[in-house]
Design a protein around this nucleic acid. Structure first.
Lengths: 212, 212, 212, 212
DNA sequence: GATGAATGAGCATTCATTCAT
DNA sequence: GATGAATGAATGCTCATTCAT
């Protein structure tokens, strides 16, 4: 919006909106198939069945599509996690160890479920987060939202929780869970995913809830 | 063999060995400064103060230098961790909680110290691990070595440890620590590094040693 | 299809068709002037007054232009021979020696006339036929057409002809005539062309028609 | 000799002569395998098991080796033809048709036998004759020698021969035979070689000897 | 003489982006 | 708005040749 340079049009008509969507979808597919760097504008346009010129009618450059694809992606992933977390915050509070374990399981499971998407696309995004400051900052924003929601959740269950620094705990919890989930769902491990998730949950339970 | 295209030589004369080294160093510097993708062979050669042809005399392409730079990097980082871990395995065994905490601190501290290197170079590597299968597999190998050493270490302290699945625990421990350390040293966080490391160690202590 | 690299387009708009033509003409001129191997894509583009990229928009590589140039060339040379031969097949048949001589003269003269083109370009083609399998096979096809037409012609005059193996005779006749014509028109000889053509015709007359 | 630039040494010692020979043989093998243009100096040196620098110790450039390889080649081919022709000139003269046919068969057979060599190497030479003036002129010289010998031969049998212009006839005879033999032995035809050679000999007999 | 490292001009090719229609 | 042709800087890579040891 305000970032928008001067040229790329923002479609208002139905046709334009559809065209833009087609381009984004084509880009998404190609980024997943061959990665961002090996995909070029011509190809995206061809796959979207539009002219090269049209591509630059809607996006000022290749990275702009990536940004849109990523925003799209987050709308389907972290947004869902957020919603589930926020719902839980306003749900009933539990106060025994067993409930705490359920909560932790729920938190991790929500993240795990959110990764039920194109892994090679996600892998590409993870790389782009490391390579591009803008993508990195988009990711930070999204991450921050989830961590905040997690913090709220932990605060809502403060009676159960032994840790003092809830913010840091939420951060730790989020990053650690994401890391292990990425290894399972995106990068792949020799380990059985159950085995890792079991240990992960055990670790977090011990950390958050104590001996039980 | 007989069909040998212009294959990269490996140097036999002193001069050649030095030239190759100069190229690797130049590449390393540029990868750190501008990233792998934005660096090109010409630049590397120029920085190394050799002709383009010399570059291709030692490396068939840009990625081959990257591989060498990464191998170099691991020789200075994970090798050191390995050495420290292996030394510890054969050191005195401890059997009380306090010793356990010390061990965990030592393990994390070793990883943390190993990251006392060029963060932007490391960031670049992390991205390349995601983008390139060959780099990924090099990384897996190195990772495996450290995890194995960690497993040995945990086994050496088995009296102290509550977890059953030591292998998974080592994996978890390694990945989780690396992730947090990367956030601190490579990606940067708003959190104070102390605050995160404290929580990380606490989490791992709880997980490995129990209440104490 | 979906994997489409940057493949050469073939032009749909008028402008594109003209550009392609310009490139082919420039290539032809340069191949004639300096030979195929010493001509490069950049030069062709420059001579055609288009950007390098445009060259690769229409041709995937230098050889593809060569192929087009050669096809063009055949359309102006062997096609004409073909037409003349085919016309003659359906013309009046002769049955005396004198008519036979006229026929042979006609056949050779048609080939000779077809070589009224750029000799250095033709020389280049002759070399490429030897060096490149694809070019060789294009040449074979064209050759086959002419030889077939010659066979028909000989068959139409079968009353005059003493040879039994008409197919082999046509092949021989064609190759032998081409060879001598090439020597005269493309490679050059110390001999006067009349002198050689006279002997050639004499030789073929004796062979095809006998004593007379 | 007098053409020799200033640098390439002319070996006088046994070792040098051997080295030069090794290089020429390596070049010959590679030119046959991959063609002159696709062979490079490094490769030749490697195949000859000498250093790149040594290559340029004996030859000022790539083409010089080609020239030597070609000279070598002619020493094994047209020289032999020459010898056989010259021997025949001084042999018994024949004066009947049957002897004439034998002579023609002999002449063609001598050329045919001379092509019992590496066809792909020969093909490469044929192309280079078209592409390079120097190679062309070497070829012309050799050709001239054979044609002269043929002329002598024809003159020696002048009683049998009906043609007036013996020089042109010898040229024609040589070029025509070479052309057909090349088609058979170097380029390949669908025709059986017997079939073509039979017609070729028939054609030349008619031309040189008449009805018989 | 020999070695192999070094050179750097040269060339093919790609592709983000602009522009004429 | 859409189309696809055109652009040309950028880049990877080759290889004939020279040079230091």
């Amino acid at each position: 919006m305000s970032e928008q340079k001067y040229k790329a049009r923002n479609p208002v008509q139905k046709r334009g909106i559809e065209t833009k969507k087609k381009i984004i979808e084509a880009a998404e597919a190609l980024f997943a198939e061959k990665g961002y760097h090996k995909t070029n504008a011509l190809e995206i346009a061809a796959r979207a069945d539009v002219a090269t010129g049209s591509f630059y009618g809607y996006f000022n450059n290749k990275k702009e599509v990536l940004v849109e694809v990523i925003r799209n992606f987050y709308a389907h992933t972290s947004e869902k996690v957020l919603n589930r977390y926020q719902a839980q915050v306003h749900g009933t509070t539990a106060d025994n160890y067993r409930e705490g374990k359920k909560l932790i399981h729920f938190m991790i499971e929500a993240l795990y479920t959110a990764h039920e998407v194109n892994p090679s696309l996600h892998r590409e995004f993870l790389a782009m987060i490391l390579l591009d400051k803008e993508i990195e900052s988009i990711n930070r924003e999204e991450e921050q939202k989830v961590i905040s929601a997690m913090t709220s959740l932990l605060n809502a269950y403060s009676g159960l929780i032994r840790v003092k620094d809830v913010e840091a705990a939420a951060f730790l919890l989020y990053r650690v869970s994401e890391e292990i989930i990425h290894r399972i769902r995106i990068l792949g491990t020799d380990f059985d995913s159950r085995r890792l998730i079991t240990e992960l949950e055990d670790m977090i339970c011990r950390y958050l809830l104590g001996e039980g």
